[in-house]
């Protein structure tokens, strides 16, 4: 167990104290050295990310249970999600993770302008992601594809007569391309009569409950990430960071990668079901 002791940064602190270095401003009073402070922060952030994973794991668990209980609902309902928009958002988030990683590198190399630029791009990506998410949510809202308590798919209401049904379907088709301008058409594998009530399994809303809970919680984390990146950006503009003190950039970066990672799981689980 002595190797555990060896891992702790006592050696570092010993040096800095014997050398009687002045305590720089960016090292809090209770740390012996910048390195000890950085390591403590990093450990703290990793532990925090563990709590985040467990936070989402409740929903992943619920997903598994309900997909097991209602497999037909998941296969049926996922056709209402727009794969192209989902893929676009995946690409946007992965790209933003790259720029975030580059921002951390820039901070370590004391490249202040590059740091600011990369943080700005990351922020921009976050806003693009939320914009696309908004478009998707609006489509769902317009078609009544909401969580179980509010689920009233336009197709399901129109089972009184063929005319009403076709009118509704027409509206749905018209709405499809307009809302998803980046996507040329409604996904081809969407069953043409998907909205016809006799084909729809019962309790379709349970899929949308999970969908909104998971993507909604994820979107809240993106918003939190925007706050964190903005904070880092302001500090970068103020010139707080240097090659010995870049911890906060690194920590926010780790958080941002986790937000990205959660989406990378959400995308196939929700959009790419077979």
């Amino acid at each position: 167990m002595n190797d555990l002791t060896a891992l702790a940064p006592h050696g570092v602190s010993a040096q800095s104290e014997q050398g009687h270095h002045p305590h720089p401003d960016y090292v809090a009073h209770h740390f012996d050295s910048a390195e000890q402070q950085f390591d403590a922060g990093k450990l703290g952030v990793w532990v925090f990310l563990v709590t985040e994973i467990l936070f989402f794991s409740g929903l992943f668990c619920a997903y598994a249970v309900y997909r097991g209980n209602h497999p037909e609902v998941f296969v049926y309902a996922h056709h209402f999600l727009d794969k192209n928009l989902g893929a676009l958002n995946t690409a946007v988030l992965i790209f933003s993770s790259l720029t975030m990683a580059l921002a951390v590198r820039a901070a370590q190399l004391e490249q202040r302008r590059a740091l600011i630029a990369f943080l700005l791009v990351t922020l921009l990506c976050a806003f693009v992601f939320l914009g696309v998410k908004y478009v998707e949510y609006r489509q769902k809202w317009e078609h009544g594809l909401l969580w179980a308590g509010r689920y009233h798919a336009t197709g399901q209401e129109s089972n009184h007569g063929p005319e009403a049904a076709s009118a509704d379907r027409g509206a749905a088709v018209a709405a499809g391309p307009r809302a998803g301008e980046t996507t040329p058409a409604v996904p081809p594998e969407l069953p043409p009569e998907a909205t016809a009530s006799e084909d729809a399994p019962r309790l379709v809303g349970v899929f949308f409950s999970i969908y909104f809970a998971m993507t909604g919680l994820h979107a809240l984390h993106v918003i939190g990430g925007i706050g964190a990146v903005t904070w880092i950006l302001a500090r970068a503009v103020r010139g707080d960071f240097n090659r010995f003190y870049f911890g906060p950039v690194d920590y926010v970066g780790l958080y941002w990668h986790l937000v990205d990672l959660v989406w990378i799981f959400l995308f196939p689980l929700l959009y790419l079901i077979h």
Binding site: F56, A148, V206
Partner: peptide, 27 residues
């Protein structure tokens, strides 16, 4: 964290009718 998400789901159930714990809605 698991308690956190559970309580959020209960709150969402009451506020929005999310349905995750409601057998009538497939929960």
């Amino acid at each position: 964290p698991v308690l956190g998400i559970t309580l959020l789901l209960v709150a969402a159930e009451r506020i929005f009718g999310l349905g995750i714990f409601d057998p009538k809605l497939g929960g």
